[in-house]
Simulated scan of single mutants.
Amino acid sequence: MAKWFNVGKIVNTHGIKGEVRVISRTDFPEERYKVGNKLYLFLPNEAQPIELTVKSHRTHKNFDLLVFEGYENINLVEKFRDGILKVPESQLKELEEDEFYFHEIIGCLVKTTQGEVIGKITEILTPGANDVWVVKGENGKDILIPYIHDVVKEVDVQEKMVLIEPMEGLLS
């Protein structure tokens, strides 16, 4: 059974030339939406995914706008609304050291180097210079952990464990 990874959701059409508006869920939009790349569209009431080839990509506001080969008309893409774009596991590339896919990090247990359990990573924010990992604390509050070497000391995606050395004030 193939493993699929969500890269975006088609939320609407854009214009009349077959462009679709996508809320991106991928770590690498510039790579995933590159012209010629294959994406697979999963629709709510369809058994099989539709294989699509990216014809064009651009960003507009907070959306990625895509056109697919053979679907250059609004009438052909209206049915794509609410569909989920995915890629098979075989399309995931090897990452550099200290780089991780979001799905590898989300769900990891976070502990301090002193052994104190902080909570589990529930979300990853990408505000700019570095990612920020949102940890649901033991008390139910969200704790924001910057993914920088001064704070994150060890990441073990096999064991779903992250060790941090909290900076002063980070956990208060």
Rank of each mutant, 00 (worst) to 15 (best):
G115A: 12
E104I: 04
S90F: 04
P88C: 01
K120A: 05
I124D: 02
E96I: 07
P88T: 05
I124E: 01
H103K: 10
F100C: 03
L95N: 15
Q114W: 08
L95E: 14
T122E: 15
G119F: 05
E123I: 00
I118D: 11
K86W: 01
E104V: 04
E97V: 15
I84K: 13
R81A: 11
E89I: 08
V110S: 03
C108P: 02
E116F: 05
V110F: 00
Q114A: 09
E94S: 12
L85F: 06
T112E: 09
V87S: 00
H103L: 04
V87D: 03
V110R: 00
G107P: 00
P88F: 02
E89A: 12
T122D: 12
I106H: 06
D82H: 12
G83N: 10
D98C: 06
K93A: 08
F100N: 03
E104T: 07
T113N: 11
I121N: 01
T113Q: 14
L85Y: 07
K120G: 03
E104L: 07
F100I: 01
Q91D: 06
E116M: 08
D98V: 06
K111I: 14
E96D: 15
E99H: 14
V110H: 03
F80D: 08
V110T: 02
L92G: 09
I84V: 14
I105A: 01
G119Q: 12
T112Q: 09
I121Y: 04
I106F: 01
E116Y: 09
T122Q: 14
E116C: 01
F80A: 12
